[in-house]
Simulated scan of single mutants.
Amino acid sequence: MNFNFLSPVSDAVLAHSELLSPQTLGKKIKIHSKQHGVPELEGVQIAIIGVLENRSDVNYMGEEFHLDEIRKSLYSLFPGNWHKTVADLGDINKGESVEDTYFALKTTITILVQKKIIPVIIGGSQDLTYANYRAYDDLAPMVNIVNVDCKFDLGDSEKPIKNDSFVGKIILDQPYNLFNYATVGYQTYFNSQEEIDLMDKLYFESYRLGQVSQDITIVEPVMRDANIVSIDLNSVKASELSSRQRISPNGLDGKEICAISRYAGISNKVSSLGIYEYKPSKDDSSTSMLVAQIIWYFIEGVNFRVKDDDFSNESNYQKFITLVEEQELVFYKSIKTQRWWIEIPFLSEINNKLKRHTLLPCMHKDYLDACDNKVPERWYKALQKNCV
């Protein structure tokens, strides 16, 4: 198998790992080292990959960076009561060009996802999400992306790709595989009115920081529907981070970003996670430990995945039908997990993207709203996207 793009985990990290307690993650995971090469992937369910690429950062000044501190923090944590095997495959170095790095990342993700291994990408600039998305060209007909970010990153797709404009490229570049794009934790003052209007026009979902902080559970249904989750560390407030990482006094706190990561892990659909915009500094320990804990919570979530979305057997779910504005809405509730779904009807007269009834993850509150004659917003947007 071709993993030529990957360079091993540094000797400094391995030496640090030697001194850790035998119960720590560093002693439990398979590690790509100079001495032993890339580990066997038999039985591995989660693979960590670093990507040392930041040239498309709008503020790029030629600086190099490494991920040693994140690895040291992660390896020093104790695993939960887990039954999943984790591997650290080392780093993808900068290619000759940014496109070369994209190609290496895209190829690596495609191989891993085909093997039912979830890649966890720790990266430089967030435009790497574009390469992550392109890895699905041969894997899935339609892709849902969730971006945990203070900005939408739509940008001007006519210009070269940057870390604040990669979503525009994802929307407009062929092949068109994007079905839904959702932003979690956006802050209005960081986004132009044009971008906010465009999100509405395309029926994409956006959850403001205030909404997420008020009720973190609103993130769960949107994660349950995601294939790719991309986390921008700039969505985290300054007080939680090291000096070079601080962007805004407002943002998600450490607990919230870890809860969001756990929701991503629990989702049966999420098959890749990226954590981006990491900038090491001399007082690095708080950021590297936060990234390590985000990864820890994701692995924890994956360990608690429950298959409850098979609705072929009626004894697995309860079905509820309500009438809203003369529209029949059909809800399903899993008996096993108490999670809710709503049916998106198939409109045969419209050349739509769905060829059958599709179930959209939702919350109990959406059902209660429907009972009060209110149309659930997620359902409305999904229906409109099918008609476009």
Results as ranks from 00 to 15, higher is better:
Ala226Ser: 14
Ala182Trp: 07
Glu69Cys: 01
Ile118Ser: 14
Phe3Glu: 06
Ser315Ile: 00
Leu25Ala: 00
Leu139Asp: 02
Pro249Ala: 03
Ser230Asp: 01
Glu53Tyr: 04
Cys387Pro: 08
Arg378Ser: 14
Ala131Cys: 11
Arg224Gln: 15
Leu323Gly: 00
Lys34Asp: 13
Ser10Trp: 00
Tyr263Gly: 09
Gln23Thr: 11
Tyr176Phe: 12
Ile321Tyr: 06
Val219Tyr: 05
Ser243Asn: 12
Val113Asp: 03
Ser206Phe: 01
Arg244Lys: 13
Val375Gly: 06
Val324Asp: 02
Gly95Tyr: 06
Thr107Lys: 06
Leu178Ile: 04
Leu323Phe: 13
Gly124Lys: 11
Arg71Met: 06
Thr101Lys: 01
Glu328Gln: 09
Glu343His: 06
Thr183Lys: 05
Val291Trp: 00
Val184Arg: 06
Ser281Leu: 03
Ala259Glu: 04
Gly155Ser: 01
Ile294Phe: 10
Arg246Asn: 01
Ile92Pro: 01
Ser261Pro: 10
Gly26Glu: 10
Asn177His: 15
Val270Ile: 03
Val229Ser: 04
Arg244Tyr: 14
Phe78Thr: 09
Asn4Tyr: 12
Asn81Pro: 06
Lys28Pro: 11
Ser312Leu: 08
Lys115Thr: 09
Ile260His: 01
Ala140Val: 11
Phe304Pro: 05
Gln327Leu: 04
Trp379Lys: 02
Ser272Pro: 04
His364Met: 14
Lys84Thr: 15
Arg224Thr: 14
Gln174Ile: 01
His357Trp: 10
Leu67Tyr: 12
Gln126Tyr: 08
Ile342Asp: 06
Glu96Cys: 05
Ser97His: 07
Thr322Ile: 03
Ile170Trp: 10
Glu256Arg: 14
Ile196Tyr: 02
Asn386Cys: 00
Leu198Val: 04
Thr107Glu: 15
Asp91Gly: 03
Tyr367His: 09
Glu99Pro: 00
Pro280Lys: 02
Phe298Cys: 03
Glu325Trp: 08
Arg246Cys: 15
Pro249Asn: 07
Lys365Val: 04
Val38Tyr: 12
Ser315Gly: 09
Ile118Lys: 05
Ser10Phe: 00
Asn227Ala: 04
Ser165Val: 08
Glu326Val: 04
Ile260Cys: 08
Asp309Phe: 13
Thr108Lys: 12
Thr287Met: 07
Ile171Thr: 10
Glu325Pro: 02
Thr85His: 08
Leu178Gly: 08
Lys385Tyr: 03
Asp225Ala: 11
Ala87Cys: 08
Arg339Pro: 05
Arg224Gly: 09
Ile171Phe: 07
Thr24Met: 13
Leu139Pro: 12
Asn313Trp: 03
Ile49Ser: 10
Phe346Pro: 07
Asp284Met: 11
Leu41Asn: 03
Thr183Tyr: 00
Val113Phe: 13
Met223Gln: 09
Asp173Leu: 03
Ser56Gln: 00
Ala12Met: 07
Asp253Pro: 09
Ala382Thr: 10
Val219Leu: 05
Gln214Ile: 09
Asp68Ser: 01
Cys150Lys: 15
Ser243Val: 10
Leu20Asn: 06
Ile350Leu: 13
Ser17Thr: 15
Gly80Asp: 13
Asn132Lys: 14
Tyr263Trp: 14
Ser235Met: 07
Ile109Gly: 01
Ser17Arg: 15
Lys169Ser: 04
Asn132Ala: 14
Phe5Met: 02
Val222Phe: 02
Leu347Trp: 02
Ser288Tyr: 01
Ser272Lys: 11
Val219Glu: 05
Asp200Cys: 10
